[in-house]
Simulated scan of single mutants.
Amino acid sequence: MTGTRTGISGTASGPLTVSVVVPCYNAARTLRACLRSVLAQTYRPVEVLLVDDGSTDESREIAAELGCRVLRQPENRGVSAARNAGVAATRGEVVFFLDSDVALAPDALGNAVDILATNPAVGAVHGTYDTEPL
Results as ranks from 00 to 15, higher is better:
N84M: 14
P74S: 12
L104T: 09
A88E: 15
R91F: 11
G123N: 11
V20T: 05
E58L: 07
A124R: 15
R69A: 13
D99M: 11
C68E: 07
E61N: 01
L50Q: 02
L71G: 01
R36K: 14
L71F: 11
E47V: 02
L39Y: 03
T4N: 12
G54N: 10
A105D: 14
T17E: 11
V125W: 12
H126R: 15
V51R: 01
G86H: 02
A103E: 15
D57F: 07
G14V: 09
L71K: 01
T2Q: 13
T131V: 11
G123I: 00
S59G: 02
E93L: 10
V79E: 13
A12F: 12
S37P: 09
A85W: 02
T17D: 03
V70K: 04
C24P: 00
T11W: 12
T131I: 12
E93G: 03
A40D: 14
L134C: 08
N119Q: 12
S80Y: 08
E93S: 11
F96T: 00
T42W: 09
R77V: 12
V94I: 15
G3I: 07
D130P: 11
S55W: 05
R5V: 06
V18F: 07
C68F: 05
A33Y: 06
T90P: 05
G67S: 09
A27S: 15
E58N: 15
I8A: 05
G78F: 03
G127W: 13
C68Y: 06
V94N: 03
V51C: 01
A89Q: 06
Y129N: 13
S19N: 03
T128Q: 13
V94C: 04
L35T: 01
P15D: 08
T17V: 02
T90K: 08
V21L: 10
I115Y: 06
R83D: 04
L39V: 03
